[in-house]
Structure formats: C-alpha cells, structure tokens
Amino acid sequence: MEIPPWSAKQLRKLGESIRDGVTAKPGLPSYDEVMLYYNDVAAEAQEMIAALDWTPLLDRRPFEVTSRPKTIDTLRQKLIRDRSTPLSNVQDIAGVRFEAEMSLDEQDAVANAIAGLFDHSPGSCTHDLRTQPHSGYRGVHLWLRVPARIEVQIRTHMQSSWANMYESAADVLGRDIRYGAFPAEPSLRKFVTDLQNMSVEGIRQLESARNGLLPLESSLMTARGELARHDPGTPDYDFYAQRAAKQTRQLDELRAIVLESENSIRAQMDSLKATFDTIREKGR
C-alpha cells in the first residue's frame, strides 16, 4: 500500500479545519483527496482479506467483507468529541468489516488470521469489545497501520444485526447514545437501555453457550471414533460408551439451552424493532 502523499502535520491542520468548519488553508490536501486515498486503502485491505482461504476456520460458511470511509459529518463529530486527537490518529477513517456466522473462538481465530495477514501481532492490535462492550456494542476490532491506519471490525451475524439496529436508533434519537448518553424522555431511555441489555446480557449469553457446542461436538466425535475401534464387552469399549453417552446428554442439554436462548433473543429483537418503528413514526 502506498504511503500517504502528505505529512502528518498537513493532515493535522486539515483535521482542525474540518473540526472547526472552516476552509482549509492553501497547500493542504482536500477532504476529497484524503477520503479517496483512504477509500483505496480500505478497498485494498478488503480485497486482501476476502482473498484468504477461510475454509479451515469457517468450513463452507459464507462470509462478507466490506469497506467504507468515514463521512465528513461523522469525522467532524469525532474530532469535536476529542479535540486533542489529530486527524492522522483517527483509527477508523478507513474501515473494513468482516461478518460471518461463527463462534467466539472462531471470531478470535479470524482476528488472528487478519492480523497475521498484515504482519501485526494480535496482542498489539486487537481490541476486544465483547467482554467490555461500548454502549452495548460488541465485536472484535483490529487497529492496523499499513502504513495508513485501518480499523477492521469482525462481527458475528448477531453482533452485526444488533449494531445495525443501534445505529438506526442513533440516527433517530441522537448520535450521543453511542457514547454513553441517554434520551431524557423515560420511554426512550428505557428503549435504549433495553437494547443495550439485549446485547450485553442476552446475546452475550447465547454466544457463550454456542461457543461451548463445538468442543463438545468434537469430543463426542472422538469418543465415538474410539468406541468403533474396540469390541463390545471390553473395558475400553465400556469406557468410551459411557463417555459418549455422557457427552451426548451434555450436548443435548446445551443445544436445548441455545435453542431457548435463540428464541428469546428473536422475540426480544422483534419487540424492540416494533417499538423502534413506533418511535420513528412519531418522530416524522
């Protein structure tokens, strides 16, 4: 990837102009030039990520890789919120998103693979927002420098569905709900609180339960394989038969928990969508 054709100082001064809503001084790159560069950077990173062979990690499950640059309005809001941050230090001017149906462990593995693709150590560039969500948002972010800064968001389908709904709510109720603020009206405050709780409690618990399915399934396959290698009536056969029976019960119990949790989340999601549709109609 090409090195940016401007200095950090030039980018900082452009950022100050964007933040303050004034015309940039002569000699500085334009916003359009900067966005075109970052758009190209994000598009190249998107292509590299999409070209990886994801079969060993995700089997044949489909995945989606998209990219987008920040709009000038969201960029200005970010610069206003933190006036000390220069434009060159804004991590997500160029953003790439990876989404797939995957367990939490698989999400970690995807993050590690993408970090390695860009010669980054996962420990130095990974920001895990699952255990400590931000205003309810959960996902895994990679902060890369290639050499420009890129943020890669890695989400499960459920994390992404929630984030999209929350973004829509922020467009109606105010962008500040993304940064810890709540609407003053009690009914709207309750809606935002319920939406956040669905993520940090319901979805988190569901994904944790799902994460336990794969190792149990793998262990059960191993036990059944060992069972097939021994003759009935032998001590080894009885051992693996008991292990397989125990793991089958555990797996059935966990699958029942996951199914119940999935149904509960779907019901909550439908209810909150209906509430949001009512809120949006009243606002028109």
Rank of each mutant, 00 (worst) to 15 (best):
A50K: 15
V34G: 07
V41S: 14
A50H: 12
D40P: 04
E99D: 12
A51S: 15
I93T: 03
H120S: 11
S30K: 05
A115F: 02
E106V: 02
M48C: 05
A42S: 14
P29V: 04
M48W: 08
V34R: 15
P26C: 02
L79A: 01
S121Y: 03
D82P: 04
A43M: 13
I93V: 10
R81S: 01
E47S: 11
L36P: 05
S84D: 07
D20M: 08
D105L: 08
M48T: 01
V96N: 01
L75G: 07
L75S: 10
D20G: 05
D119K: 08
A50M: 10
F98V: 04
F63L: 13
A51D: 14
N39L: 13
D105K: 09
T71M: 08
A109C: 09
S88H: 13
D32W: 05
P26N: 03
D32A: 15
E106W: 07
K25I: 02
V34C: 14
D108W: 11
I72C: 06
A24L: 04
A42Y: 06
L36R: 15
R68N: 02
F63Q: 10
I114S: 07
E99N: 07
R68K: 10
T85S: 06
Y31T: 11
V22D: 06
G95D: 08
S121Q: 09
R97D: 01
D92V: 03
I72H: 08
A42P: 01
A50T: 06
V90P: 08
Y31P: 09
L58V: 00
A100M: 00
L52T: 02
L117K: 00
A113I: 02
K78E: 13
G27I: 03
V90Q: 12
F118G: 06
N89G: 03
D108M: 09
A115P: 06
P122F: 06
R83H: 12
A109F: 07
V41E: 12
Q46K: 15
M35E: 14
T66C: 00
I72D: 11
L36K: 15
N112W: 05
A109W: 09
S121W: 04
S30Y: 03
P122I: 04
G116H: 12
L104F: 09
L117R: 02
G21K: 09
K70T: 02
D92A: 02
G116V: 01
P56V: 04
Y37A: 10
A45K: 08
L87H: 05
A111S: 14
I49C: 06
A113S: 10
R97F: 06
L87K: 08
E47I: 01
S17D: 15
D105S: 15
P29Q: 04
